[in-house]
Design a protein around this nucleic acid. Structure first.
Lengths: 233, 233
DNA sequence: ATTATACTCAAGTAATTGCTTAATTAATTT
DNA sequence: AAATTAATTAAGCAATTACTTGAGTATAAT
């Protein structure tokens, strides 16, 4: 028979499993990456700047908290979020941090200083134009992440392959680049590269998880070449 | 100038401040209590079963993460959530844990075993009856928490004073008791006491934060004696 | 079979965290 | 002024956590 105190202790102990899982910067980065789609240990480790052994251990921690799941195909172990709710929770944590910790805005400002402003003055109109397909939308993440989920109508142009696709991009039309979310630097670099070559480009801070949270539809799979008349390889 | 890696490291470091804050069972219990309303250090320590010094330290940690704020009136320091969003975040964490960690359900089952079932078979109809005022609703938390926020129409009968109010309670009408939420034992004890005395009583698992999350209105301040014709002291 | 690859596990260590006790500060009461 | 109360802080210790290195396992390629 459990006493009231024992009961509460046991319950909060369980709740803290989730808390402990998100108490590490590395694990938060891994979760953020997994919000983009499933990945192998090696890829996650590389993206997050961790040793493979270290990433593996962090992933085990996340798995014990039941936030992620893994399965093995051949040599590779692919990790993925155990549930979309985990992504929603990550976004809730991120948003809470953004609202409560002024330091975050400061870090972003510090990173952006010296660069030209690349977000449009007003965010809502941009979202509306993206939603209506009134602009050319570039998904500059690695191809796998695009396939796992992307903004409908967006074309996949991984940052690394941007050079090869410059000829296909419109010079007269506004280009909107997005990547994983507000703290991903891929779209920032894409916009810089595009502007340096004379394109009209802006960055959308939202990633697919943010887009989904707004209630907007998400497409998945390969893109079909009907979009904006561009083939991406 | 911040490199991409430095930027990410700094950002995830910040995000982890929130994670670290909720990585401890004691701090989660304190947050849960603060979701009910502002409290002094001593009260929080007593409710959470912590020494005052220990509670004070945990509260400092929560304050460094900007999740709570404190101000001093005379000898007393009153802590409160820095924002309602913090309560929403706590609920999100709790719900995620409930969905992902089967152990929680097991702990609840273990606690409830041997007791008569006190939740109604269907939860939605109960909520509807509570909302319509079709039942007598008892708030069995300490009076301060009732004043900070309660279900409209509920009357304040702190568990400790339940005995004194038995005469005022209806014997023919269903009584619904609620407290802080699903892991608070006050309403469980209240229902047991009421049933032992022949009342028809059920427990509502929701606390005020859960109720608010459903989008239902929350009342605050002293109750007026028009409700159910009962005066509570 | 041997080698290579992707990943996990174990051991070791440095750093951090959690809790206690005791001292200290700040405001109030006597 | 002295004593009391609420809360914070400091010191100290045990427990936990984070990361590295090196070994071990499972699968695939040669």
């Amino acid at each position: 028979m459990l006493s009231g105190r024992q009961f509460k202790t046991a319950i909060y102990e369980e709740l803290s499993r989730i808390g402990k899982a998100v108490a590490s910067p590395s694990r938060l980065e891994l979760l953020d990456l997994l919000c983009q789609g499933p990945r192998t240990v090696e890829e996650l480790a590389r993206e997050a700047g961790l040793s493979v052994a270290n990433a593996s251990q962090h992933l085990r921690t996340l798995r014990t908290a039941r936030l992620v799941e893994a399965d093995k195909n051949g040599l590779y172990v692919t990790y993925r979020l155990a549930d979309q709710q985990v992504c929603a929770f990550f976004l809730a944590l991120r948003t809470l941090a953004e609202n409560r910790l002024a330091e975050i805005e400061q870090i972003v400002r510090q990173f952006m200083e010296g660069r030209e402003p690349m977000e449009p003055l007003e965010k809502e109109p941009l979202l509306e134009r993206v939603r209506q397909g009134a602009v050319t939308v570039l998904d500059v993440r690695p191809r796998d992440e695009y396939i796992a989920g992307h903004i409908p109508g967006a074309i996949s142009v991984p940052l690394k392959k941007l050079e090869q696709h410059l000829a296909d991009l419109p010079t007269d039309r506004e280009i909107v680049a997005y990547c994983r979310g507000p703290y991903c630097v891929l779209a920032v670099q894409a916009v810089e590269a595009l502007r340096a070559r004379g394109f009209r480009a802006v960055r959308l801070e939202d990633g697919v998880p943010d887009w989904r949270r707004r209630g907007f539809p998400v497409a998945s799979g390969e893109d079909r070449d009907e979009h904006q008349g561009i083939k991406s390889a």
